[in-house]
């Protein structure tokens, strides 16, 4: 029986090594879940076209910056600009982060489709997230407690939201539920009647209702011309000016194919 086991193990290792194929150096991307869909689609396309392996991990903008500084990724995908502290740390390690704007993104405020509230002002949203407003009744909705949904603290989306809506240095309510990604915010909001959350525009679909901020709904047009008040650029960061495969990868966002992917994913081309 032991022989059988060994045989099994042998076959197994054969099967595994059979698929082994090492080819060139892989690109490693790390960072924001918001930029994740763009990064993943680019990666698939890039691997197909140039035969270069691309690994994408989505662990948050902060983590992307850290990985770039540590030299553990070639491109950091970030949904916010690098902070001064991060740049200083990078310089100290001999890394020179260079920003490339890939696309623009509107931060959509979303509620459950059953929620009759259609529009909120920036001040109202801010009060909800500070915990000053806790019931939908106070903003013209039904009598129900607001389930506030925010993002993990390492999220660039979270930081952009704070900066754009609430203001720096103001504390959010501790009652806010934390989700680790845009996708999970969407699924929480779509299954929770009294929830409110914020998403990258690219993640919005019919399972949630987008509400207008200051009377403006986010769309390609309003994000591009800046009338929608909550939008931001998405970045790829590289160490120094990119060259070779890295440059090809980053320049995808300027090609027709890349632009097509970006707009199909719901983001806005620059």
């Amino acid at each position: 029986m032991i022989k059988k086991l060994l045989l099994l193990g042998f076959f197994f290792s054969c099967a595994v090594t059979g698929t082994a194929n090492a080819e060139g150096k892989a690109l490693v991307l790390d960072g924001s879940t918001t930029v994740g869909p763009v990064a993943k689609s680019f990666a698939t396309y890039f691997t197909k076209k140039y035969g270069v392996r691309v690994m994408v991990s989505e662990s948050g903008s902060g983590n992307g910056a850290k990985s770039l500084i540590n030299g553990s990724c070639t491109i950091a995908a970030m949904s916010r600009a690098m902070k001064d502290a991060e740049i200083a740390a990078a310089r100290k390690k001999g890394v020179n982060p260079v920003a490339h704007v890939v696309a623009l993104d509107g931060l959509a405020m979303v509620v459950h489709p059953g929620n009759p509230v259609r529009s909120l002002s920036k001040a109202q949203i801010s009060s909800i997230y500070r915990g000053a407003i806790t019931n939908w009744k106070e903003v013209g909705g039904v009598n129900s407690r607001i389930v506030v949904i925010q993002r993990e603290s390492n999220s660039g989306t979270q930081e952009s939201f704070k900066e754009l809506v609430i203001g720096k240095g103001v504390q959010m309510t501790g009652n806010a539920e934390t989700q680790s990604s845009n996708g999970s915010v969407k699924s929480r909001v779509s299954t929770t009647l009294s929830a409110i959350g914020f998403l990258g525009l690219g993640f919005v679909d019919s399972s949630v209702r987008v509400i207008a901020v200051n009377g403006v709904l986010p769309s390609v047009k309003t994000v591009k011309d800046g009338t929608y008040p909550v939008s931001r650029p998405l970045y790829f960061y590289t160490n120094g000016q990119p060259a070779g495969a890295v440059k090809q990868f980053i320049d995808l966002s300027k090609t027709v194919e890349g632009k097509g992917m970006i707009s199909e994913l719901g983001f806005v081309n620059r």
């Binding site: 850290k66 500084i69 740390a89 934390t178």
Partner: peptide, 21 residues
């Protein structure tokens, strides 16, 4: 109600761990 635990905080927040500074 929703809560948060030590283990989940480590798993979720480690991403920001800027060990450099």
């Amino acid at each position: 109600e929703a809560i948060r635990t030590l283990t989940a905080t480590i798993a979720g927040d480690m991403g920001e761990a800027d060990q450099v500074t």
